[in-house]
């Protein structure tokens, strides 16, 4: 999966999966310890969003390094790619968040 669009999709679905998995499986713990599961589900979904993006683009350092190369050494193509990867991860994570919110039927 080396092509640009392939990597874009990989990042999108990874961030979506991280968010859905973390919140859905994580909320089971709330049931076990007697807390309101939906509240915990939504809180995890909200808090894990940024980590889902980071996990999907594969760690922050390489991305920041490429951003630096793009800005200071004129590698605009790489810079644009990285921005699209971040955007894709963000869209995936946000879509996961929206799925969770609509699944439990709460407007928050």
């Amino acid at each position: 999966m080396d092509l640009f669009y392939q990597k874009l999709l990989l990042i999108f679905f990874t961030s979506l999966g991280v968010l859905l998995g973390a919140s859905l499986i994580g909320s089971i713990s709330a049931v076990l310890v007697g807390y309101p599961p939906v509240e915990v589900l939504i809180r995890i979904a909200r808090e894990i969003k940024i980590w889902a993006i980071v996990a999907a683009i594969g760690g922050t350092f390489s991305t920041i390094e490429i951003l630096q190369l793009g800005i200071f050494e004129g590698e605009f193509r790489a810079l644009a790619k990285q921005l699209f990867y971040i955007l894709s991860a963000f869209v995936g994570a946000h879509m996961g968040y929206l799925i969770i919110i609509n699944l439990v039927g709460k407007n928050t």
């Binding site: 499986i25 909320s27 709330a30 589900l41």
Partner: peptide, 11 residues
């Protein structure tokens, strides 16, 4: 996970 989603609101 599905039970949490389906009966979570009631809980």
């Amino acid at each position: 996970a599905l039970s949490v989603v389906s009966i979570g609101n009631n809980v």
